[in-house]
Design a binder for these strands. Structure first.
Lengths: 89, 89
DNA sequence: ACGAAGCGTTGCAAAAACCCAACGACACGT
DNA sequence: ACGTGTCGTTGGGTTTTTGCAACGCTTCGT
């Protein structure tokens, strides 16, 4: 978390894991790290290495930008179905 | 370079820098690291943090996968103009 | 010939990421 | 009530990335 304190990095790990019914331990095993490391990433304790980020993205079959991003993620749900407020109809 | 020794990560830093006429020091300043760090990345001494990778990609205006990849990059030149051998015409 | 600029590389110190063991909290099934 | 599983978190250690200073090499301009 070096100079990224002015520009943090967000991630969708928790959501993606929930979507696929993956437990922390399961994801940890899939990317060959400890479950605590997954926990630390989810709660933002620190950032992953590029190596680990790639392994994680490979598990989910997603590009890096879909899992990690500089600006906070909008919920996938509203992104797919739209927000109730947007039309104000 | 932890577990990535079986699956290394390649990067196009040198080429991208040359394309835009950026010196090591210039790129280093743009992403706020030391020039030696750029050198270490280019020669594969170690991998960048995700934070640094993002800053680099921002400078080039490219997605992460365009700068860092798990399989070696084909030269941009042949990728754009094609290889002489392919037709064998 | 000289200096400046860029590259390539080394060695050591600091910071960040990661490992590992352990504990408590909560939900669930029996 | 008890065990199991998942989560959340902590503390102390190892590994990797980064910072920093320094040196040698080449090219270019003067």
């Amino acid at each position: 978390m070096r100079r990224g304190k002015d520009l943090p990095i967000f991630n969708r790990l928790q959501v993606l894991r929930a979507e696929r019914g993956l437990t922390r331990a399961a994801l940890a095993e899939a990317v060959e790290v400890n479950p605590q490391t997954i926990g630390a990433l989810e709660r933002g304790d620190h950032y992953p290495s590029l190596d680990l980020a790639f392994r994680i993205c490979e598990v989910f079959g997603l590009p890096v930008e879909a899992v990690f991003s500089r600006n906070p993620f909008t919920p996938l749900s509203t992104q797919v179905y739209g927000s109730r407020q947007e039309g104000t109809e």
